[in-house]
Design a protein around this nucleic acid. Structure first.
Lengths: 222, 222
DNA sequence: GTCTATAAATGGATAGAC
DNA sequence: GTCTATCCATTTATAGAC
């Protein structure tokens, strides 16, 4: 189902940590598609290329694996924050093309980032019955991005780059657009190809352009 | 885990169809929270109040139950269409209060309708690995509502009720707001209480009011 | 129509050899 | 560190009594 990527290094030294990481990666791969409780230790072992009994050398039990993945989400949130900060550093210029490109970048390289995307898909399943997963899900897709966007719009209003408005509501509208496109095109089971990706980008650019036009001071922009 | 709700009726007559319905209802209850493959026939039987072996009198096997639920989704789509049509019949007046109330009604009484809400939650899980579920999910939350909203906005533009614009893009913006609120407040594992519901309504009204203001012809409205 | 009993497969987890 | 072998609980599903 899932093959291992690196056959190169197999030195008996740091193999312990390496295998542990491979188990976590394979677990996320499987959990994000089938859900935690559906995936058996046998399947997981097969995906990693070891027997299921060997997994117990690295983890206490099955839920321990899930807990380790959950813990990783928090550091992933930090990473997302940092990466998004970089992407929005340029926002001080606030040019139309730049504004749209930033939103597209957010979907294409942060939400659809290989690792975060799998985490989101896993949380999408687990949040239905797991309170902690539900909490992480809203933090990841709502609370933090909204908080960030609100600060960006506040800054822009104070700098006179956009007309006065409610920054919190603007942030909500912005995130609504982002999540709408993300879920419309990337929420299902289907592998997404290039043309699929193109369609998503086209609609996102369209909606962001409309949003951008509404931000203007009525004079210089658009 | 789940106890049965009705001990009252046990007449030997039409019990066959009735029990079948009770099994389907209990199955949806459990599948929508834990996912299809996680729920065992024992749990399901316990929820209904019969032994798991008795379920096989009503259904060929476990997947047969899922298939029956899936089939029901299509009729549910029709029902949603009819109900939404009723709700939007009034839209010909297009008064601010009415416009907002219609959107709130859509979330509160259609998306959060007991049955449809469970279907959506179930599809949220199954879509990750089931193509048919993924298809239904996008039909239910994207394709059909967008199609409907586009027709509504087109009609309104032709009637001169709102200023000329791209109806398809307007529909996308509208649905983005609806889904944003729906998922922000009702996507998790937590039971939602009255104050939670109030917060959701408040934000939805806020965003719909902003959307409404953008639709105006620049003169009479707002 | 629902029950008990049971078959056959699969689940998580441990013990101990190498 | 990973293996084989094994334990025991639970799973889906069937057979047959009532």
């Amino acid at each position: 189902m899932v093959e291992n990527m690196e056959q190169t290094q197999s030195k008996p030294t740091e193999d312990k940590q390496l295998t542990k990481q491979r188990i976590l990666a394979a677990a996320l791969d499987l959990f994000s598609v089938y859900g935690f409780s559906t995936v058996s230790m046998r399947e997981l072992g097969k995906a990693v290329g070891i027997k299921e009994s060997s997994i117990y050398y690295h983890f206490h039990n099955k839920v321990h694996i899930l807990e380790m993945i959950f813990e990783e989400v928090y550091s992933q949130i930090e990473l997302q924050r940092a990466r998004f900060m970089d992407a929005l550093q340029v926002a001080t210029s606030f040019e139309r093309k730049q504004f749209i490109a930033t939103g597209v970048y957010y979907v294409e390289h942060i939400l659809l980032d290989n690792h975060l995307y799998k985490l989101i898909r896993m949380l999408t399943i687990e949040k239905q019955h797991n309170e902690k997963a539900a909490e992480m899900y809203t933090q990841l897709l709502f609370h933090w991005p909204l908080n960030h966007q609100e600060r960006v719009f506040t800054y822009m209003m104070n700098a006179g780059l956009i007309k006065q408005d409610n920054a919190e509501e603007l942030a909500a509208e912005y995130q609504a657009i982002i999540l709408y496109v993300f879920q419309k095109y990337f929420s299902g089971a289907t592998e997404f190809n290039a043309s699929h990706m193109q369609a998503a980008k086209r609609e996102l650019e369209q909606l962001l352009a409309r949003f951008y036009n509404r931000l203007g001071k009525g004079d210089g922009l658009s």
